[in-house]
Nucleic acid binder design. Structure first.
Lengths: 248, 248
DNA sequence: ATGGCGATTATGTATATACATATTGAAACG
DNA sequence: CGTTTCAATATGTATATACATAATCGCCAT
């Protein structure tokens, strides 16, 4: 069993050499052949093994380092890192897409719209330092006849002034904002709560029934753009997150 | 206002050139200066602009492409991509860390442990094709005197045979598995549920009270390793996910 | 011992060059 | 007029080379 062979199985696919080096090494790490702490071969050794230039090996190793699988130390070499903080990529689809994926007709209905000067709570939610105009929106997403999610949103009008002219009567602000305002950063908070009177009423569920709450704050180049809270009745929604350590 | 200047503000920091090119372009995209669909300068133009070799420019653009911010087309150039599916990096900390971050003493207590041949349900949860031995574990994580989370876990003993010898009386299987088994893939499902009798009893809450459920399936190099379900009483836990489009 | 110092070494970044490959646009042809 | 062919072009990958930088090792002097 050749242990350091440059992949004797011909992948038959046309992959670049640095990519093959990368996945060879990744495989050794993920399979446990090279345990955390293990020193992987020096660049010049891999250069000899794969009969290529150092730049090619370097490209593969740099990517593995950026992906967090290995750690590189000058003069010492490259080492397999300890499995780090678990992280997962959370896919957050548009609600319309989710509903339509269920084969149900989608509909949005605005419940409330209010332009106002930001109060302390608004500024807390948005992360604003100074007062300014905000737009408060509340609406319901329907899957068929049943309420699918309640949306409560604050938009920072200093950042997105055009939003003041929109009614958002039948389209949710989410799709409107996406494409118009490029986000640069977002933060999500996910938790379970019991439905209070208002929420239960809107979603047509019993007060006290469990709900999944997803809150999202979005920034565009440092400026707070919007804070939105989605409230899903238990059962209507499952968030799915998938994780693979490094990109192929 | 110079629009295509190579960052006239001296960053004063020692960053590599390809990195500066990368963040210059990223900034233009995130600020909206270059809207989705916009063709960013050709490599040879950036080469002239930054007075560097094409390889340096290429490194920056390749990374932007891999990060999903731009799309590269041969003979046509590179284009700013439409804001894609929202994705977020979910941080999933060790429960001990979370509890200790609250300043509370952490304790784990095993409730149940059973080695058995996998039944149909087990195989469904783990994603196993054939029958085999599994280890069923149930335990409680405490924050101080109060139950913080209920853990229900299945371990595929064909993948992690050493687990059969562990008692997991006072240490949870999570920390034990991490470091021993390098994961290569994981899938999470997050939802809200009402506590049933058993869960309510274990967590010392009222039946029907809302709970946050996080389920995780883990694979190591194609082999299912474990399926774990964490059940948090509402209020005890908030998942936080942060997102920045591309790495610096 | 021990503390400093220079040589050695592996990685980090950048260059100039070369050829491959996909795609486009225009010319040539039936 | 439609189709084929071909050259031009931008990106994709790889090489050889060069110098910078950080960390370590071993030598030497205190």
């Amino acid at each position: 069993m050749s242990m350091a062979e440059p992949t004797d199985i011909d992948d038959s696919e046309t992959v670049s050499l640095h990519q093959r080096i990368l996945s060879d090494i990744r495989e050794k790490i993920l399979s446990g052949t090279w345990a955390p702490g293990h020193r992987i071969p020096f660049e010049h050794e891999l250069t000899a093994e794969y009969k290529c230039s150092r730049m090619t090996v370097n490209k593969a190793l740099s990517q593995l380092a950026k992906a967090g699988l290995i750690e590189r130390r000058r003069r010492s070499g490259s080492f397999v890192r300890q499995p780090q903080s678990q992280a997962a990529v959370l896919e957050l689809h548009d609600i319309r897409i989710e509903v339509e994926a269920l084969g149900l007709p989608y509909r949005y209905e605005r419940l409330d719209r209010l332009k106002r000067r930001s109060n302390v709570e608004d500024r807390g939610l948005l992360g604003l330092a100074a007062a300014g105009s905000v737009l408060w929106l509340e609406g319901l997403h329907f899957a068929g006849e049943r309420p699918f999610a309640l949306e409560q949103r604050l938009i920072n009008l200093s950042a997105v002034s055009e939003a003041a002219n929109e009614e958002f009567l039948e389209i949710a602000a989410g799709p409107w904002l996406i494409g118009r305002v490029p986000w640069s950063e977002a933060e999500h908070r996910i938790r379970a709560v019991a439905a209070d009177e208002t929420v239960a009423d809107a979603l047509d569920i019993d007060p006290g029934a469990p709900c999944l709450v997803v809150e999202r704050r979005t920034w565009s180049a440092e400026h707070p753009v919007t804070h939105v809270r989605f409230i899903y009745p238990a059962g209507s929604h499952t968030l799915v997150a998938r994780f693979t350590p490094s990109q192929g």
